[in-house]
């Protein structure tokens, strides 16, 4: 099993890197159709290998592979890949795969390096509630990532329209209104998932009486405040377009900084 995991640890990042390369060609080449099928095939192979890796890790560790930072990154990348695969089917967004797969690939590469295959989870952390909490947290991270990727695309297209730069990137990006709406929807979904994750987390801490485990309230409230604020001001004060995109990106920066600062999500 360990040989299989070691092999997959090499194959999965390679598959993601190759697929991201194909998606880059798909986006920047005028002959988009030449790369379309290859890109989709690459994504399916990458996701299949990635799923095998997660299952093999779980089997080897006798637990859900969400116990370490590396495992979390791998799972986050997997959610991003699945989200992109679904949006390819539902919203014909294949040409934008580069922007979703690039962060997924970075997470995979970092995740593989940070993996600790023999890491044993302490007994108090072996709870199904904790698993749900982590899955929901990572799903909210993935949603926020999608929202910020779309917000970034919005700003790029906005800049190109304002500066009358009609290059290949301009042609390939979807309409401004679509980017704005999609970014807002992912942000809303991310906020809802994060609230859900927090509720599960609090329930788990209270149920298991883990006195030493607490939430870094300031960090989580800050992130939620930014994203929920963006949604509310969109509804109430018409905060759309460029300003909305900037707020979403700011929220994502806060999310990244709090994670880098805490290293274990929002936990003290």
């Amino acid at each position: 099993m360990e040989t299989l995991i070691d092999t997959l640890k090499i194959l999965v990042p390679l598959a993601y890197l190759a697929t991201t390369g194909i998606y880059a060609q798909l986006f920047f080449s005028p002959e988009e159709k030449r790369f379309s099928g290859k890109a989709h095939l690459g994504l399916c192979i990458s996701l299949a290998l990635h799923t095998f890796l997660l299952v093999a890790l779980g089997y080897n560790l006798h637990r859900c592979p969400l116990g370490t930072f590396g495992e979390g990154l791998l799972f986050l990348a997997w959610i991003l890949g699945v989200i992109h695969l679904l949006s390819e089917w539902l919203a014909d967004s294949r040409r934008l795969g580069l922007f979703t797969l690039l962060p997924a690939t970075l997470c995979v590469v970092a995740g593989v390096f940070l993996l600790k295959p023999d890491f044993a989870l302490p007994a108090e952390l072996r709870s199904s509630l904790l698993v749900f909490h982590i899955v929901a947290s990572l799903a909210s991270y993935a949603c926020f990532s999608m929202a910020s990727i779309l917000a970034g695309m919005y700003l790029v297209l906005h800049g190109k329209l304002k500066h009358k730069n009609f290059d290949i990137t301009f042609r390939k990006l979807p309409p401004l209104e679509k980017l704005d709406k999609l970014s807002a929807n992912w942000s809303f979904l991310g906020s809802a998932t994060m609230v859900f994750s927090s509720v599960i987390g609090i329930t788990w801490v209270r149920k298991d009486g883990l006195a030493g485990m607490g939430l870094n309230e300031l960090a989580i409230y800050l992130v939620l405040a930014v994203f929920l604020g963006a949604g509310a001001s969109r509804r109430l004060f018409g905060l759309r377009g460029k300003r909305h995109a900037l707020v979403i990106l700011a929220g994502f920066m806060v999310l990244l900084l709090t994670n880098l600062y805490g290293t274990h999500g929002f936990h003290r």
Partner: peptide, 12 residues
């Protein structure tokens, strides 16, 4: 048509 295309780029 270029005008229509640009309008679509902004408004969908």
């Amino acid at each position: 048509y270029a005008a229509v295309e640009l309008a679509k780029k902004v408004l969908g």
